[in-house]
């Protein structure tokens, strides 16, 4: 959505911004340089609401590269982000079910 720049965002821990790449839908993460990476470990991590909001606004402003951006809480280890909940784990690792083509 071309949402108007958000004014407020409450975060509950380290937060990254994620979206899906426009052309192929692949899960991407916003980097510190405001580019997009397919690796969550390269995501810029915000620890304040202001910083998270700035990331989110940067993401929304780049809707011609990635769509559906939202702020996701992440875990941080050695300065690198990793998924903090099931939803983001599934987005990073894929469905939790075997989906090999062999039935």
């Amino acid at each position: 959505m071309t949402s108007p720049l958000q004014q407020k965002l409450k975060i509950t821990g380290p937060t990254a911004v994620t979206a899906n790449r426009l052309a192929d839908g692949v899960v991407v993460w916003l980097t510190a340089a405001h580019g997009w990476s397919t690796h969550i470990g390269e995501a810029a991590v915000a620890t304040t609401s202001e910083a998270a909001l700035a990331l989110l606004n940067a993401a929304h402003a780049d809707e011609n590269h990635a769509v559906g951006a939202y702020a996701a809480r992440v875990a941080v280890e050695d300065g690198r982000a990793s998924p903090a909940n099931l939803r983001e784990r599934i987005r990073v690792d894929g469905p939790t079910i075997a989906f090999d083509a062999a039935a």
């Binding site: 052309a23 839908g25 899960v27």
Partner: peptide, 25 residues
């Protein structure tokens, strides 16, 4: 893809053709 249509305008058009954006793709 060229940016001529924004996501808000495109979304109902893609939906009308059965195209959703889901978790992975």
């Amino acid at each position: 893809l060229s940016g001529e249509l924004n996501e808000e305008e495109f979304k109902p058009l893609r939906l009308m053709n059965g195209v959703y954006l889901q978790l992975h793709a």
